[in-house]
Design a protein around this nucleic acid. Sequence first.
DNA 1: TAAATGTATATTGTCAACAATATTTATTTG
DNA 2: CAAATAAATATTGTTGACAATATACATTTA
Lengths: 224, 224
Amino acid sequence: MSQHPFMFKQQANTSLREKVTNDLREAILNGHLAPGSRVKEMEVAEQMGVSRGPIREAIRQLEREGLLISYPYKETVVADLDAEEVRNILIPIRHHIEWFVVQRYLHEMDQKFFAAMQAIVDEMREAALNGENLRLVDLDIQFHQTILELANERTVLLTWQSIVNQIRLHFSKNLPYYQLDHFEKDHQELLDAIRSKDLPKIQGAIAKHLDSDDNLLCFDRPLR
Amino acid sequence: MSQHPFMFKQQANTSLREKVTNDLREAILNGHLAPGSRVKEMEVAEQMGVSRGPIREAIRQLEREGLLISYPYKETVVADLDAEEVRNILIPIRHHIEWFVVQRYLHEMDQKFFAAMQAIVDEMREAALNGENLRLVDLDIQFHQTILELANERTVLLTWQSIVNQIRLHFSKNLPYYQLDHFEKDHQELLDAIRSKDLPKIQGAIAKHLDSDDNLLCFDRPLR
DNA sequence: TAAATGTATATTGTCAACAATATTTATTTG
DNA sequence: CAAATAAATATTGTTGACAATATACATTTA
């Protein structure tokens, strides 16, 4: 085996704006900034110790990600997602691009890929048992993202980025309405179908997964 | 019939940033800024007679719309869309949300709506005859947007906004590969199906429309 | 001459001050 | 007192200057 020569890891050249965007997004997804609550530029800027420039650029980006809503000359508030819209529009979009990627990149799914996927599903069981809700949401997102990252296509990733955080926020908000122990089961089934590399079977599994995302909801009352 | 009291139309409170975003977007869609070409902040700012602040915010927005690509500390360039990605990802997304909206808002489609839609299709014939290519693309977009605007749902419109300009750019770029006279025919068929208010029939028509968007392409050589 | 190093220039990133707009509070006026 | 008006405050929008980074060019050095 050939020895690689030592190399320094490339310095991450993250601009302030990027860090601000990430921190702001995180705060929204954590629920630290509640839906409907106002986001004041100066307040955020002072807390982060930066000027308003990067904050404003971050706002423009998060606006497009569906997390913020800006009313010109007035204010910007955290978006309050409509559960039905997410279920009827965004999640089906996720399934569509997923199906596209699976079809096209099935042959690139190797042992390493399946190991990573299985690890995610295994963690889901743990998280469900321990009642780690947000971790469960993270793993769900990670499961689907791992598939999508097989395709290194700009449009796939851009589309994913424009919906992923709304989906994440939706699940965080509505997790009390989902049955936690179904996460592992549903994703295991989907993963097994993909492992079989039998396209019609996979298509069925994806369709079924879509249904389960829909039907796990029990809107009359929270399950917990 | 009751007379509405006279009211002045609300002044459009468009910020500079918004105007910049629109102008920049227009320049890209017109092909005035070619795919791959660099967008220098100072150059744009000077030409528009504004400072760089609004320009930078516009860039963040257009980045999310898929029209620009920004490399931090380096440059931002006009996106060069991959025709296959648009056809495989974005156009199916359009059809999906369209199908969703049609299902849900069928009952709100009145005489006025159908008249507007028919007018668009009629204009398509004219445009095709006169070889007004960009007009044809505009009408195509307008046709589908008119449907989507029935739903005043945030997620529908946000999703549409995040794909519409990429689709428009795609058609502008690839119009030489499409058969102009098919536009009117395909959209007339779809419109007629919707007019029938027969859901299975509509679903078929939408599926067929998707196919025609795909198959009109003739990648070996431009048709003109 | 070619590789490495240093310098100049162009461009993007950030900031702090100022302008425009919206909201709130105080004041007037019938 | 209630409605209308005016002043004060808070917040967003815009700008021009300065800082950080990358690229292009010139210089050194073997």
